[in-house]
Simulated assay, not measured.
Amino acid sequence: MKVVLTGATGFVGAPLLRRLLADGHQATALTRDDGGALPADAARRVVGELGPDLDCGDALDGAEALIHCAARAHIMDDPAADPLAAFRRVNTEGTLALARQAARAGVRRFIFVSSIKVNGEATRPGRPFTAKDIAAPADAYGVSKAEAERGLLALADETGMEVVIVRPVLVYGPGVKANFHSMLRWMQRGVPLPLGAVNNRRSLLAIDNLVDLLVTCLDHPAAAGRVFLAADGEDVSTSGLLRAVARALGRPARLIPVPALVLTALAALVGKRDVARRLCDSLQVDITDTTTTLDWVPPVDMDTALRRTAQHFLNKETH
């Protein structure tokens, strides 16, 4: 199958591109410039920045499927003067410009990597998010993804192009950056953390499981027109995750049992309320619809994925 991929040099796109090639697909990476290494057997087409003025030229001609991973990622303390406008330009307007060109080029299926933030920021105990929930994004990034989803589904109705939407939770794996990388560094250095009493529940997603799900969505007949939540299917507390990461690193977990309410109050005093919420709140997803509709089971368990993540981190730290 001829597959076009955006975000092919990123954390999700790079292993996805390798998997597509390993499975025998003819893969073309759409990139904004000629930077970033690609496998020798992958084609590259430079199309510029993702936005409303995107022009793919003939790069999509002959493609049967397009997997759209590129996005303006969510970041803490966004420096943009108008974060919502910045996110909309790339994640909403850029996505829809790409999709309209894909439909005109005859692309049969458009797979959009969205975000669980379309559902919201947190869940109540025993009430995980589902794909049928009404969208309730709480920040600019989530709003931009939700608007892109609505636009894609409308375009599918208009053109007949099959749209598949995948909403991942926090993705981790070899090469993970941002907060997860910071957590690896804290545990490797044995930094004491006041998180030993946090008994929330969080869903996570190993990069290998996300890649496998996206590949499954390429040609599964039941995927068209559907929204799928993506996770490992193994929920864990923040304290449990830290202990699991420490084991994977071969280090002790130095966790101090400070009540979550105290942590949240102290964080608010120093302007870090959002950080405390991410650490203490629950965010669970129910992937039953994903697994039953696609006859799919996450191929990698959390402990194995954490060991691979930790080993990659340690290799980088020592070289």
Rank of each mutant, 00 (worst) to 15 (best):
V47T: 04
G48S: 00
G48P: 08
G48W: 09
E49Q: 15
E49K: 13
L50V: 00
L50C: 04
G51K: 06
P52Q: 08
L54D: 00
C56L: 09
C56H: 09
G62I: 08
G62A: 04
G62Y: 05
A65Q: 13
I67H: 11
C69F: 11
A70C: 12
A71K: 08
R72S: 03
R72H: 08
M76Y: 08
D77I: 15
D77Y: 07
D78Q: 12
D78I: 12
P79N: 06
A80P: 14
A80I: 04
A81H: 15
F87K: 01
F87N: 03
F87I: 05
F87R: 07
F87A: 00
T92E: 05
E93G: 06
E93R: 08
G94D: 02
A97N: 02
A97Q: 01
A97C: 07
L98V: 11
L98G: 01
Q101T: 02
A102L: 11
A102E: 04
R104I: 09
A105W: 06
G106C: 13
G106K: 06
V107S: 02
R109S: 01
F110W: 10
I111E: 09
I111W: 12
V113R: 03
S114P: 00
S115E: 01
I116D: 13
I116L: 13
N119H: 14
G120N: 04
E121R: 15
E121G: 14
E121Y: 14
R124L: 12
R124A: 11
R124I: 05
R124M: 12
P125K: 13
P125L: 10
P125G: 03
R127L: 07
R127H: 14
P128F: 03
P128H: 07
F129A: 07
F129M: 09
T130K: 12
T130M: 02
A131K: 14
A131I: 15
I134C: 12
A138Q: 15
A138D: 08
D139H: 09
D139E: 10
A140K: 10
A140T: 05
A140W: 11
Y141W: 02
Y141I: 01
V143E: 03
A148R: 05
A148Q: 12
A148K: 13
G151E: 10
L152D: 04
L152G: 05
L153Q: 12
D157K: 15
E158A: 01
T159N: 02
G160P: 03
E162Q: 13
V163D: 06
V164R: 00
V166K: 04
Y172F: 08
Y172D: 00
G173E: 02
